[in-house]
Design a protein around this nucleic acid. Structure first.
Length: 401
DNA sequence: TCTGGGGTCCTAGGACCC
DNA sequence: TCTGGGGTCCTAGGACCC
């Protein structure tokens, strides 16, 4: 297909809320948010809730203050994953060049699209109609020559719309926008730019790139200057987003973290949580057939300051006890006797395919017993569900008696 | 009841090697 | 005595995205 705007960005509207509301039509027109329970933040809000100022990433407390009558729904990730897979499948009917960014958004390159009906706009409208018919969820589409402009266009098209930005209108579209709209500009960078007097994308575009590099760092400075002129050479790469299991590049790390119900200074409580999180992570490593050399822990204190500590091992591992032992060493090395701890996390980095490790004859030989125990746990989890199997020290007092 | 959980990438300093 | 210059790995922190 010959077109000067071959990139589509498709973004579900209020995805988590929309997915849950499919089966709760009576709530459709009432303000609804997903998540935001004890110590949690809002994961998604439907448009009636947004009318009250409720936004994702806001604390549940704040959201309820803004909208006391808001209906709170619990997230259902199995449902979200299933709906997402169906939606992505719709995209692939248009083109194989689909890059899933997350469960609810994707880039499509329609240059190689078949003869399905017309140009990018027709394809975009077909996707919107089909997703709506088959999945009962509204989505918005941005159409442009590049990934970054398509992404901004879909945001402007919301809710339930489509916006094309032709190449000769890119700067007119971009330059009035606030710098915070640019991909890669979060709260911190936006504030810094504003303090430098750079408020709009046009301001960034007309600042010498050397100045931007000096003030923001070499990479970010150059990147933002490019984006401000709509220069973005990144291609849609279907290999990305390994979460969806489409044979993309393997993940670079896997981790798990959790905020305690209330802050704790009890080493035993912390270690039990580290073991639980480690078991969760290593089970994922094994099911993905990868192992990692670096073990990192995260500790967040009551005042929200957060530290990470990491240690690189001699060889990659997926063995629960090895990762756990490293995590405990890292934790104990901090000497946190009296600290009030809010959250701990465990992450394994530097992942490589397990065969690579096995070929070196290492994995499983060092601690055959522990590796065998892990395999037994994996088998039992497959048969009885993961809730049925966990390390003995995670069982409460009296368990098994 | 202020502030989740899953990630990626960049920067920067020091160690270490050639 | 008067001191290079890269390259890579490791660690810690921070910003960002969804």
């Amino acid at each position: 297909m010959v077109t000067d705007t071959p990139i589509l960005h498709v973004d579900m509207d209020a995805f988590y809320a929309s997915a849950l509301l499919r089966d709760r039509p009576e709530l459709q027109d009432r303000p609804v948010m997903v998540g935001g329970g004890h110590r949690g933040v809002v994961l998604a809000a439907n448009y009636p809730a947004r009318a009250y100022g409720v936004r994702s990433a806001m604390t549940g407390t704040r959201a309820r203050r803004l909208c006391p009558q808001v209906v709170v729904l619990q997230p259902d990730y199995d449902l979200f994953t299933a709906v997402s897979a169906s939606v992505m499948e719709v995209f692939r009917r248009v083109t194989p060049l689909v890059e899933a960014v997350s469960l609810d958004e994707a880039f499509l390159d329609v240059r190689a699209a078949g003869r399905r009906a017309g140009g990018p706009v027709e394809l975009g409208e077909w996707i919107r109609a089909t997703v709506h018919d088959e999945q009962r969820i509204a989505c918005s589409v941005g159409v442009a020559a590049s990934i970054s402009v398509a992404k901004l266009a879909s945001r402007r098209a919301k809710p339930d719309g489509l916006l094309v930005v032709p190449p000769d209108e890119v700067t007119a579209f971009l330059h009035p926008l606030d710098v915070g709209e640019l991909y890669g500009v979060g709260d911190k960078t936006r504030t810094r730019l504003h303090r430098l007097g750079l408020v709009t994308v046009g301001d960034v575009a007309h600042t010498p790139v050397a100045t931007l590099r000096r003030d923001l760092g070499h990479h970010l400075g150059g990147h933002l200057h490019d984006l401000a002129w709509g220069v973005d050479v990144r291609e849609v790469s279907p290999g990305r987003a390994g979460v969806f299991g489409h044979g993309g590049p393997p993940d670079r790390s896997m981790g798990a973290q959790e905020t305690f119900g209330r802050d704790t200074d009890d080493r035993e409580v912390v270690l039990r949580e580290l073991l639980r999180l480690t078991a969760k992570v290593t089970a994922r490593l094994r099911s993905a057939a990868v192992a990692g050399r670096t073990v990192a822990i995260t500790v967040r204190f009551a005042d929200f300051t957060t530290i990470t500590r990491s240690r690189t091992l001699g060889e990659a591992t997926d063995v629960t006890q090895e990762v756990y032992a490293a995590a405990v060493r890292l934790y104990d090395a901090q000497g946190l006797q009296r600290a009030r701890i809010r959250l701990v996390g465990v992450r394994v980095e530097g992942l490589v395919p397990r065969q690579q490790v096995e070929r070196q004859g290492v994995l499983g030989e060092r601690d055959r017993g522990w590796a065998d125990a892990d395999r037994a746990v994996d088998r039992a989890a497959r048969r009885f569900g993961s809730a049925a199997v966990r390390p003995a020290s995670l069982l409460g007092p009296g368990a098994g008696r």
